[in-house]
Computed example of a mutant assay.
Amino acid sequence: MANVVPLKPVQPQSAVAAVRLSQVRIEFRTRNRPPFKAVAPTDLAVQENEFVAIVGPTGCGKSTLLNAVAGLLKPAGGTVEVMGKPLAGLNQDAGYLFQQDAVMPWKTALDNVAIALEVKGVAREDALGEARAWLAKVGLGRFLDRYPHELSGGQRKRVGLAQVLIRHPKILLMDEPFGPLDAQTRQIMGNLLLDLWAGDRKAVLFVTHDLEEAIALSDRVLIMSAGPEARVIGDHRIDLARPRDASDIRTDPRFHEIHKAIWTQLRAEVAKTYGDAAP
C-alpha cells in the first residue's frame, strides 16, 4: 500500500519555501455574471531543491495556479510568497516553460537562446558563448544555425529548455511542457530534464495531465479536485530512488503501487468532469 496522505499535505520542513501559497483563491469576473470561482482557498508549498508535480482533471485550475506563481495572474485573495517574500508583479526568480514553443521563427537556435541574456543587458558575444554551451548541454551543439522550422518538435523543446535555463532561475514553472510530443520523445525529454535538474536541483512546479510522467519525474505529486472551486486534495510522496530513468522507473513495482494509490483518488475527480460521478 502506497504511503499517501489524501488531505493534509506532506511537506519537508523548511523555514523558507521557494514557493508558498497561503489561502490563495482565484476568481474570474465577467460582465453581468457572478464571479467564476476557479480555485478555492488553497495552500501549497514547494521547497528549495524540490520537484513537485500537479495533476488533476481538465479545467481544474492547474495552469491557473501556475500563472499565479509566475505573477501573470493576481489572486482574488490569499498570498503568494517566493523565496520568503510576497510576490509583487512578475516572478523574477522563475523561468516559465509553456506547452507551446516560445521560439522565434526568424531566429536560429543559437540566437533564440542568446536573446534570453541579451534582453538583460549581457553583451552579445558573451550571450552567444553561453548559448552555445547550453545548446550543447541539451544535445543541440550541431544545430546552432538551424531555424525552428528545420527542427523537430523535441528539438524545439530543447531550445526552449535552454532559453529558460540560461537565465539560471531559482524556480522552474513548467506547464505541460512536453504535452505536444509523442510518448517516446516525452520520455527522452523527461530524462534530459532530470539530468539537467540534478546539477543544481532547482525548485520545480510541474503541471501535467500525465500521471505516469508526474510520478517518474517528481518528489511529490499534488492532486487537484474537479472545478469550479478546485483545491488541492492530495499530496503524495514519491519515494522512488534517485537518480531515475524516466523510462525504466515505470517497470519498478513500487512505481505501480504509487500509481494505483494516486489514480484511486484522481479517478473520482476526473469522472466528475465527464458527468460520471455525483458531485
Rank of each mutant, 00 (worst) to 15 (best):
K85Q: 14
E81F: 08
Q163A: 07
D93I: 00
L172T: 03
Q99W: 08
K62Y: 13
A268D: 10
V55G: 10
V138M: 03
A261T: 09
F178A: 08
A230K: 00
I166Y: 00
W263F: 15
L87F: 15
E118K: 15
P6C: 02
R250Y: 12
F178P: 01
M1S: 15
K202I: 12
H168I: 00
T264H: 15
V119C: 06
A216F: 13
T108Y: 13
R142D: 15
H209E: 04
R124L: 01
I249A: 04
L194E: 09
D235R: 00
I223L: 13
G139L: 11
V80T: 07
S152G: 12
R231A: 11
L87P: 07
L144T: 09
T264L: 13
R220M: 10
I188W: 03
A203W: 00
I223S: 05
Q265K: 11
K120E: 12
K137T: 09
G234T: 03
A136L: 08
R167N: 02
S152V: 12
R250D: 04
F255K: 06
K137Y: 05
L172E: 05
K202L: 09
V39E: 00
H149Y: 14
A38F: 04
E213M: 14
Q47C: 11
R132K: 15
L151C: 06
P253E: 10
V5L: 11
Q23M: 09
A109D: 11
Q13P: 01
N32H: 14
G129E: 08
W263M: 10
G61W: 01
P34N: 09
K85M: 04
P228T: 03
P253W: 08
A2Q: 07
I249Y: 09
A131Y: 06
V52E: 01
G160N: 15
P243S: 07
L128I: 12
R250C: 13
D210C: 14
D182I: 06
T108A: 07
A68M: 04
V119I: 15
K272V: 12
E212T: 10
L128W: 07
L240I: 08
Q92R: 14
V69L: 06
L110Y: 06
E27H: 13
G141N: 06
D43S: 03
V46M: 04
P86L: 10
Q100V: 01
E50D: 08
V207F: 06
N3R: 10
A76P: 04
A246V: 12
E257A: 12
E257L: 11
D93K: 09
K170V: 01
K120N: 09
A277Q: 12
Q163C: 14
L7Y: 09
P148L: 12
L172Y: 11
R33H: 06
R156M: 03
G153V: 01
L217G: 01
V270L: 15
E269M: 04
P35I: 00
Y147G: 04
H236F: 14
N49M: 07
R25P: 00
E50S: 05
E150Y: 14
P35A: 06
V103M: 08
K157R: 13
V119M: 05
S225N: 02
H256N: 14
A162T: 05
Q187M: 13
W197V: 05
